[in-house]
Amino acid sequence: TRVETATETAWISLVTALHLVLGLSAVLGLLLLRWQFPAHYRRLRHALW
C-alpha cells in the first residue's frame, strides 16, 4: 500500500505540473497572438462576444 500511495502522489504531481505547463503555454500563446495580431484579435473577440 505504501508503494501504491507513492505512485499515486507521483501521478498527481505529474498531472498538476502538466496542467500548469499547459495553462501557462495557453496564456503565453494568447498574449503572443494579441501582441502580434491586434486587429485580428479584436475582430476575433468581437465575433466571440
Results as ranks from 00 to 15, higher is better:
Leu22Cys: 14
His40Phe: 14
Arg34Glu: 03
Ala17Ile: 11
Glu4Pro: 02
Leu32Ile: 09
Leu28Val: 00
Leu48Gln: 04
Leu30Gly: 11
Glu4Gln: 11
Trp35Gly: 15
Leu22Ile: 12
Ser13Asp: 06
Ala10Trp: 07
Arg43Ala: 12
Leu22Ser: 11
Leu18Trp: 10
Ser13Ile: 13
Val27Ala: 10
Leu48Asn: 06
Leu44Tyr: 08
His46Val: 10
Ala26Trp: 08
Phe37Met: 09
Ala6Val: 05
Val27Ser: 09
Ser25Thr: 13
Leu24Tyr: 05
Thr7Phe: 09
Ala26Cys: 13
Arg42Val: 11
Ser13Trp: 15
Arg43Gly: 07
Leu22Lys: 04
His40Ile: 07
Leu30Thr: 08
Val21Asn: 00
Ala39Cys: 06
Thr9Asp: 08
Ala10Gln: 13
Thr7Gly: 10
Leu32Glu: 03
Trp49Gln: 05
Ile12Trp: 04
Pro38Phe: 08
Leu33Gln: 05
Pro38Ile: 10
Gln36Ala: 15
Val15Cys: 06
Trp35Glu: 11
Arg45Leu: 07
Arg34Cys: 08
Trp11Gly: 02
His19Trp: 07
Leu33Gly: 04
Gly23Leu: 14
Leu24Pro: 07
Ala10Arg: 10
Leu20Asn: 02
Ser13Tyr: 13
Pro38His: 12
Phe37Leu: 09
Gly23Cys: 13
Thr9Pro: 14
Ala10His: 08
Arg43Ser: 09
Leu48Phe: 07
His19Gln: 02
Leu32Pro: 07
Phe37Asp: 06
Ala47Lys: 14
Leu20Ser: 06
Val3Arg: 01
His40Ser: 10
Leu48Val: 12
Leu33Ile: 09
Leu20Asp: 00
His46Lys: 06
Ala39Ser: 13
Ala26Leu: 13
Leu24Ser: 04
Gly29His: 00
His40Val: 08
Arg2Cys: 10
Gly29Thr: 15
Leu20Tyr: 03
Ala17Asn: 01
Phe37Ile: 07
Gly29Ala: 15
Arg34Trp: 05
Arg43Lys: 12
Val21Ala: 14
His46Tyr: 07
Ile12Val: 12
Pro38Met: 13
Gly23Ile: 12
Thr9Ser: 12
Thr9Ala: 11
Leu31Val: 10
Ser13Pro: 04
Leu30Lys: 02
Gln36Leu: 12
Gln36Thr: 15
Trp11Glu: 01
Leu22Asp: 00
Thr1Val: 13
Trp35Ala: 15
Arg34Pro: 07
Leu31Trp: 12
Ala17Asp: 01
Gly23Ala: 12
Leu22Arg: 02
Val15Asp: 00
His40Asn: 09
Glu8Leu: 05
Leu14Val: 09
His19Phe: 05
Thr5His: 01
Leu20His: 00
Ser25Ala: 13
Ala17Leu: 11
Ala47Glu: 05
Thr5Met: 06
Glu8Thr: 06
Leu44Asp: 04
Ala6Leu: 09
Leu32Val: 14
Leu22Gln: 03
Thr9Arg: 12
Thr16His: 04
Leu28Ile: 03
Glu4His: 11
Leu44Glu: 01
Ala26Arg: 04
Leu33Val: 09
Leu32Cys: 01
Leu32Arg: 04
Gly23Asp: 04
Tyr41Phe: 15
Val3Asp: 01
Ala6Met: 10
Leu24Ile: 10
Val21Cys: 12
Ala47Gln: 09
Trp11Thr: 05
Gly23Arg: 00
Thr5Tyr: 01
Gly23Tyr: 02
Val21Trp: 04
Ala6Glu: 08
Arg34His: 06
Ala26Ile: 09
Arg43Ile: 09
